[in-house]
Nucleic acid binder design. Structure first.
Lengths: 222, 222
DNA sequence: GTCTATATTTAGATAGAC
DNA sequence: GTCTATCTAAATATAGAC
C-alpha cells in the first residue's frame, strides 16, 4: 500500500519480509504469544528493523491485518459488482458466494500462504479482546454493511436486525471452516475433511442461506 | 471436582480464588496475555501459591477450562436425559435447545461470572493453536459425539458427515453469541442487542435447525 | 500453607556505529 | 537502511524462612 516496488530486482524488501513473517508467527501464536525476535528471525532480517519500519509490534500487527483485509474485501466487491452487472437481482445464494468464497478460498490456498492469514483472521474476528474488536470493526464493518443491505434486498420479509444476525452467523460459519483445525476429521473419523474448497463453500452457503431464510420466516413478537 | 468444601466457614480457599481470578484474566487477555502475577493479585493471594497449587500457568489454564466444561456438559446431559425420558423421539429443535442453552445461558448469566468463562470458551473453542485444539478435544469431543449421533437419529436423510459439519456450524454460531462483543449492536445501530438470552437461543436454534435440515436435503454427489 | 526474596530468562524497544 | 550492543522491564518459576 505505502511501499511501491520501483526496483526491478527487488529481492522482496525487508518491510515486506517482516509482514510475511509476522503473519506466519501471529497466526500460530496470537499477538502476545509472538515475539518480535521470532518475527525478525523468520523474515531473515535484523530485529531492529522491525521497529524502524513499523514503530512497534502493535502497529505491525495492525498492518498485517489491513493488508489481507484490503485484498479479501477487494475481491468481495469485485464479485459483487459482477453480480450487479446482471439484469436479474442477485439471489441470497449468489450473495453468500461472493461473500464467502474470497475468505474460504484464501484459507485453502496453499501456494500463497493464505492459510496462515486465515488463521490470523480467525484469531482477530473471533477474538473478544479490545484489539481484536477494534481491528475487526476497522477492517470489516464497511463490507459488512454492504452485504447486510444486499441480504435485505434479496430475501423477502428479512428485517434489518435479522440480516445483521444472519450476517454474523454466516461469518462465524466461515471462520469455523477457515481455522482448519482438523476437528471435523477427528469427530467423523476421517470422513469429513477440510481439504475441498468448493465443497466447504457449498456447505457453508447451503447452511447459511437456509438459516437466514428461516430467520426471515420466523414469527415476530417484538 | 477435586476439592470438596468440608469446612462450614470456608472463606473460599486460595485454590478456588485462583481459579476464579484465572478465569477472569485468561478470558480478557488469553493465555499469553495473562500474567501469573495478575492472577494472584486478582485472587488476593500470594503469587507463589499459584505454583504451589497448580504447578504451572499451563496446568492452571487447563483446570479453569475443565471446571466449567464439566459443569456445562453436565447440564447438557441432564437436559438430554429429560428429552429421552419422553415417549416421543426428540426433535432437532429440542436437541439444539439442550445443546445450546447451557452455553449461551451461561454466557448471559451475570451473577455467576459466566460471561467471563463464555469469553474463555470462545478463546479456546475458536482458537487454532495447539493448546486450544487439545483442550477443546479433551473437554468437548465426547459431548460432541453424543449430539452428532442424536442429530442423525432426528433428521431423516442426514448423513454422518453432514451431522458433523452441522454440529460444528452450530457450535460456531453459539460462540458468536457468547463473545458478546457488541458488534451486532454496532452493525445495526443498536437495533440488535446481545442481552436477551431467550431470543439469542431462539435465533441460534432457528438458524442451525434450518441449516442442518438443508444439509440433509442437499443432493449428494460424492 | 503462606510468605519474602530472588534466580533465570526473555520480552519490547532504542542508541549509535557504519 | 542495516547492524551490534544494550537498556529496562517484566515474565515464570523456585528456594527457603516461618
Amino acid at each position: 500500500m505505502a511501499s511501491t516496488l520501483t526496483t526491478l530486482d527487488s529481492p522482496q524488501d525487508a518491510a515486506e519480509s517482516l509482514l510475511d513473517a509476522a503473519e506466519a508467527e501471529f497466526s500460530e501464536n496470537g499477538f502476545h504469544g509472538t515475539t518480535t525476535r521470532a518475527i525478525a528471525a523468520g523474515a531473515g532480517v535484523n530485529a531492529a528493523l522491525l521497529h524502524y519500519y513499523f514503530g512497534s509490534k502493535e502497529q505491525l500487527f495492525a498492518r498485517v491485518v489491513e493488508r489481507r483485509a484490503a485484498e479479501i474485501n477487494g475481491r468481495r466487491r469485485a464479485l459483487l459488482a459482477d453480480l450487479e452487472a446482471l439484469t436479474t437481482a442477485p439471489s441470497l445464494e449468489a450473495l453468500l458466494e461472493a461473500f464467502l468464497r474470497p475468505t474460504i478460498e484464501f484459507g485453502h490456498d496453499s501456494t500463497r500462504d493464505g492459510q496462515r492469514y486465515a488463521r490470523l483472521l480467525v484469531y482477530v474476528a473471533a477474538g473478544t479482546d479490545e484489539r481484536s474488536r477494534r481491528l475487526t470493526a476497522q477492517n470489516y464493518n464497511d463490507i459488512a454493511q454492504v452485504f447486510i443491505a444486499r441480504f435485505v434486498d434479496a430475501v423477502p420479509g428479512l428485517a434489518q436486525k435479522d440480516a445483521v444476525r444472519g450476517y454474523l452467523f454466516a461469518v462465524s460459519i466461515a471462520l469455523s471452516l477457515m481455522g482448519r483445525t482438523g476437528r471435523a476429521g477427528d469427530l467423523s473419523e476421517g470422513a469429513c475433511h477440510d481439504d475441498d474448497v468448493n465443497q466447504a463453500i457449498e456447505e457453508a452457503k447451503i447452511f447459511a442461506a437456509a438459516g437466514i431464510r428461516a430467520l426471515a420466516m420466523r414469527p415476530k413478537d417484538d
